[in-house]
């Protein structure tokens, strides 16, 4: 369970170009649910996801992960928490060019230093589940958009995260691939993973697996605070 209490994020605080990206959000996100954040461009969706995923710290307010306050944790703990708890899928996929699919998937696990054979077999089994077994040795620049995203998904899953965070995951996919993506997310949710998605895409909002859509505007929750499906 994730709880946000009066979370604010201000960029360039105290300067003429000061910008409030998240303006006091209080929110409770149930574990094992699929939540979608919706809102116009610049409404603070990406910023909110980075705050939840410990990628950046709030300017004020507090975030709790399973009852534990994480906003004031020292950096090494925060990093450790981030890589064991959260898996990220970026809009641009952010795969390393000229590196094999397999190595891209294994990359987030390197700092944890487990044995190579265990890591490799785990990465291969994820690739297999995502239908990419044949591409393990391929370089990522040879992949189609859908394949590249599935590599990004496998990479997000490699450390066994409890929470999967995806920012505009369908922006580069056609309708069919978008639906496939949402079906995959539904599978992961069934397996117990908490899923947070930021998206403009109605295909995402309307997917059956979505438990809750949170509307944002100008960095605030739109009232009625949220709609529970």
């Amino acid at each position: 369970m994730i709880e946000l209490s009066q979370v604010r994020k201000v960029f360039h605080a105290g300067r003429p170009n000061e910008h409030v990206a998240v303006a006091g959000v209080s929110l409770t996100l149930e574990a094992g649910r699929l939540t979608v954040f919706r809102g116009p461009s610049g409404s603070g969706k990406t910023t909110l996801l980075s705050l939840i995923g410990c990628m950046t710290r709030p300017t004020s307010g507090r975030i709790f992960l399973q009852g534990r306050e994480i906003t004031s944790l020292p950096l090494p703990f925060l990093t450790d928490l981030r890589r064991r708890t959260f898996g990220f899928i970026f809009q641009q996929f952010h795969l390393l060019a000229k590196v094999s699919v397999l190595e891209n998937v294994m990359l987030p696990a390197y700092p944890l230093g487990e044995s190579y054979s265990a890591l490799k077999s785990r990465a291969l089994s994820w690739l297999e589940r995502l239908g990419l077994a044949a591409k393990a040795a391929a370089k990522v620049e040879w992949l189609s958009g859908g394949e590249a995203q599935r590599v990004a998904i496998a990479r997000a899953l490699i450390n066994g995260p409890q929470v999967l965070i995806a920012d505009e995951p369908t922006a580069h996919l056609d309708s069919h691939l978008s639906q496939e993506f949402m079906a995959l997310m539904a599978d992961f949710k069934t397996a117990g993973t908490t899923i947070l998605i930021a998206s403009h895409d109605p295909l995402v909002h309307e997917a059956v697996a979505v438990d809750r859509v949170v509307d944002l505007r100008d960095g605030r929750l739109v009232s009625p605070e949220s709609r529970i499906c």
Binding site: L75, T79, R82, R83, F88, L96, L107, P108, Y110, P111
Partner: peptide, 14 residues
């Protein structure tokens, strides 16, 4: 690449 590694959860030190 450095940015991606950081986003993947690598520490600055790593």
């Amino acid at each position: 690449e450095i940015g991606i590694l950081k986003a993947m959860g690598w520490e600055t030190g790593e």
